[in-house]
Design a binder for these strands. Sequence first.
DNA 1: CTGCAGCCTGGAGTTCACTCCAGGTCAAGC
DNA 2: GCTTGACCTGGAGTGAACTCCAGGCTGCAG
Lengths: 125, 125
Amino acid sequence: MGSTGVSVYTPGQVVEETGFSLDTLRYYERIGLLEPIGRNAAGQRRFTQQDVGWLGMLRCLRGTGMPIAEMLRFAELTRAGDHTVRERIELLEAHDRRVEEQVDHLREQQVAIRNKINYYHSVVG
Amino acid sequence: MGSTGVSVYTPGQVVEETGFSLDTLRYYERIGLLEPIGRNAAGQRRFTQQDVGWLGMLRCLRGTGMPIAEMLRFAELTRAGDHTVRERIELLEAHDRRVEEQVDHLREQQVAIRNKINYYHSVVG
DNA sequence: CTGCAGCCTGGAGTTCACTCCAGGTCAAGC
DNA sequence: GCTTGACCTGGAGTGAACTCCAGGCTGCAG
């Protein structure tokens, strides 16, 4: 391990790691998607490994189109403790099904787009 | 064929067929995604088979995440005539690649979500 | 002839998810 | 000791894509 026993991340490092913008990180904290992030003496955020891990989860959910409101629910369930694990499973499984539908849907429409492309190719020869 | 020689569609029928809302149809016409739709004596829209076909294409593009601005460009190319077919091909092929990326991306994140689900399952037993 | 459903217009309002801003603090390098 | 850059706050602004509204017309079922 380095000079610090525990890994902490500056906002800049978290931006780097997660791909969220600094404004988005602050926004997520404000609305309660993140628990209040620890601060150093100067009041600057210091993210823990855990925070970064959680952000990874959020990125996954957002990236697959989960609305903020539902992520918020997931965050609350997570904070509420172990007795909510079943609910979290349900939430994620429902989301997983939606992702599956999204993929199917995209594939279907892709076929139509490709048909159009082929048609155009046949027009220009 | 029925009582009308050519098929025309009332706004309501187009809503039914395309899944776009009436407001969206009007919006699309306003911004130029649709050419001005024909009207009956009372000033009400009457969509042609062609209009409905074009709307099908739009639905496909929107449904795969193409921004309105780009659909507008596609609409303008289409209106401009046959000499734009190559540009249209390029536009659609670029979009097709983005759709492909979308699908890959979704699949990747889906794996992470499923891992999480499995982890939760292991927790509750 | 009355009522209602479906349609019309221009323009305002909404939702979502950020993103930006002004004005300020603090640490470190030159 | 001054500048620079990363960071802070509360709150306002943005962009995309609709969606809604008030007020008004028409055609037809009862």
